[in-house]
Amino acid sequence: MKSVRLLAVLLGLLVISACATAPPRNPLADWRPSPNHEPRRARMVVIHHTAMRSAEGALLVLQTRNSGGRVSSHYLIGEDGRRYQLVAEQERAWHAGSSRWAGMDDINSISIGIELDNDGSEPFSDAQIGSLLELLADLTDRLGIQPHLVVGHGDVAPTKKDDPSVHFPWQRLAQAGYGLWPREAVGPAPAGFDAWAALRLVGYDLRDPQAALAAFHRHFRGRQDREWLEGDAAILHDLQLQLMELPQATAE
């Protein structure tokens, strides 16, 4: 009898231990676990497109070791708006590679990666963007991520990546409160305004200036020119003002 009771106690402890160590799962998404992760804490969100033909195909790549090396993201959103969670939010997924934003390196260690089922050549569906906005509302509120720190993979890795493509509706996200977007009444930049310095302040890595400029144009102007365009300085001046108006993040 004592041995039976002891076994019951041990089993109970195992159950409690398993519950305590199990990674939290977001009820907003279907749990599709990937083993490709490490522990960390998120400070920003990076949006990608899969450049594949289907969500199921992307899930297979994100859950396995493939020819290009292991890759994963925290979430994948299908064209129909269905959400999948592959990695727990406190774990470090492998989605951003070598990247940099606002002077911060190793973006994988400080970000949530969200893949969107899109091949990069077509608009994103309303269902998908609506689902993304719902997820962003949850993540920024629950994890304390500053809403303006929602960027694209091409923003943090401008020399190598161009996702989520010129078709991504950054303005719609900004209207919902995520990321930055120039305000409608954008006035001219003041005399002597340093557009390159402003580009760095927004967050872009200027080690390859033309690549950073192309990433800025892709995000804010829906094109990928590698030279300055008329109106760029006014946009950057407004973005700079918006950043200066943000409340300071509290130290933790």
Rank of each mutant, 00 (worst) to 15 (best):
M1N: 11
S3G: 02
V9G: 00
L10K: 00
L11G: 13
L14R: 12
V15R: 07
V15E: 05
I16E: 11
I16H: 01
A20N: 07
A20E: 15
P24Y: 10
N26K: 04
N26F: 03
D30C: 00
P33S: 00
S34Y: 13
E38G: 13
E38P: 02
E38A: 15
R40D: 15
R40H: 05
A42H: 06
V45R: 01
V46S: 03
I47D: 02
H48R: 03
T50G: 09
T50Y: 06
S54Q: 08
L60V: 11
L62E: 11
T64Q: 13
N66A: 14
R70F: 03
S72N: 08
S73M: 08
H74P: 01
Y75C: 09
L76N: 06
D80R: 10
R83C: 10
Y84A: 08
Q90S: 13
R92N: 12
G97R: 07
R100Q: 14
A102W: 07
M104D: 00
N108G: 08
S109P: 07
S111N: 05
I114S: 06
I114R: 12
L116H: 07
D117Q: 15
S121G: 12
E122G: 07
F124S: 06
S125V: 14
S125A: 15
D126N: 08
G130A: 01
G130L: 00
E134H: 06
L135Y: 11
L136E: 00
D138T: 12
T140Y: 05
D141K: 15
D141Q: 15
D141W: 13
I145G: 05
V151K: 04
V156F: 15
V156T: 11
T159V: 09
K160I: 08
K161N: 09
D162C: 04
D162K: 13
D163K: 03
S165L: 02
S165E: 02
F168L: 03
P169T: 00
P169W: 03
Q171A: 14
R172N: 00
L173Q: 11
Q175D: 15
A176F: 00
G177T: 08
Y178K: 02
L180A: 09
V186M: 11
P188C: 07
P190Y: 11
A191S: 06
W196P: 00
R200E: 14
V202P: 14
G203F: 05
D205E: 14
L206D: 00
P209S: 12
Q210Y: 04
A211M: 01
F216K: 07
F216P: 11
F220N: 04
F220E: 05
R221S: 06
D225W: 00
W228L: 14
L229A: 11
E230C: 01
D232M: 05
A234T: 11
I235L: 15
D238M: 02
L241I: 07
E245C: 04
Q248M: 06
Q248K: 07
T250R: 15
T250G: 05
